[in-house]
Design a protein around this nucleic acid. Structure first.
Lengths: 139, 139
DNA sequence: GTTGACCTTTGATTTAAGTCTAAGGTTTAT
DNA sequence: ATAAACCTTAGACTTAAATCAAAGGTCAAC
């Protein structure tokens, strides 16, 4: 089991050590151990948990949402399976909606990029709003 | 051309009138007209612009990002097509990344939901992190 | 054995994105 | 012609999510 100090973890996830302490204070993830001198020591479970948090955050969940999801883990015996399924399905449908919107947006930008010559001419014909307009028309 | 007052627009987009004034103050979108008594009047171009903003926001862009995108529109002639294409492609790749992450996340949650009985058993096997662990293994 | 890069805590500050309050003018319905 | 439901501005407040600052302890290197 490799133990990491806060600075190493911070570097690995590209965040500030402050942010990790903030997450700990807010019950998202902490170091499960300390050195004799009081330094936080993160083990691989902690890292996995943090990794989940970063992924969820990247996908647009708030820290509160993430806490909900993680509470399933911390609190297994207090959750009936049906509750878990329900909550996960709720988050899942949020994701599906987001996915759909993201795809729509992607194709808008894509058509804009395609319409855009990419040359040195002025961007007279590179209108974002026009690109969206044509998209709305086929909706 | 139908002109709308701020309250109608707010209702249509499910935001507060305050939010629209805030967007105006920050140069994202304003009403292009005013009534004699000084009420904001939004025309269909304004609405289209606002619609773009809401979609971009839903997809996770910050207001600053959105301003970048819209600045192309306001300032067309000062942009070279190549610049526009560059910036749009940058945003596009951000979206692609998000899309990929979202898909990964979706399938994690989906496998969790599927594994989850939905019955009265305790959530012993409904741990997000366990589900992700098994997913990571096959990654 | 001291310098510099770490780590600790507590508490204040920042930033983004709203949201609300106060003090008033306008429009609509009765 | 007046109450209710709008609208205006300027400016204060809130919330989430960090980020920073101060004052100090620890550790590796030279």
């Amino acid at each position: 089991m490799t133990l990491m100090k806060i600075g190493e973890v911070a570097k690995q996830f590209n965040v500030k050590a402050d942010t990790l302490r903030f997450y700990e204070k807010n019950g998202l993830v902490g170091a499960s151990g300390r050195s004799q001198s009081g330094y936080r020591l993160y083990n691989s479970d902690d890292i996995q948990r943090l990794s989940f948090i970063m992924r969820a955050k990247a996908v647009g969940f708030s820290l509160a949402d993430i806490q909900d999801l993680l509470s399933i883990e911390l609190d297994k015996s207090n959750w009936a399976c049906a509750d878990v399924k329900n909550m996960v399905d709720t988050k899942l449908s949020q994701i599906e909606a987001k996915l759909a919107e993201l795809n729509r947006f992607r194709s808008s930008l894509k058509s804009l990029s395609d319409a855009c010559c990419g040359g040195p001419d002025s961007a007279e014909y590179c209108s974002i709003l026009e690109a969206l307009e044509s998209q709305n028309a086929t909706e």
